[in-house]
Amino acid sequence: MKNRLIFYALITFSFFACDYTSYPQGKALYEGQCSGCHGLKAEGFRELYPPLTNSENFRKDPYNTACLIVNGLEGPLEVNGITYDQRMLAIEGLTDVQITNILNFVADEFNPKVPTPLNIDLVNERLEKCKNDPKVY
């Protein structure tokens, strides 16, 4: 009984002790490719870049973000009552695996309402759709 308590305590502790994330590659890619604009904690920056934390659009359709990443996004976009209007450039050279990992990290870390893991087949299905028509989101 006592041993078991210690065991659980240790497990819980180790979760807090290390910088725990289930999606280390997604985290690294997010920090390298997205955090410059959206912020390390996805808090956004002034009215230039929207936060990605508890994003309504992301919750409604997380797979859409795969298309945003490969096609970029431009034009007025309202998030939490603020109209953003800068350009997010398309990010080139990411594989479907990498994109899926980014989506999962963004979901897991900043959008707890979105059930993870997001599925790579659905990511590919969506990428196929928006590949030829960047307007389809």
Binding site: G36, Q86, R87, M88, L89
Partner: peptide
Amino acid sequence: FTSCPTICPKVKK
């Protein structure tokens, strides 16, 4: 430049 993805947002901050 306004759509610069990497260093500019850091510099602007």
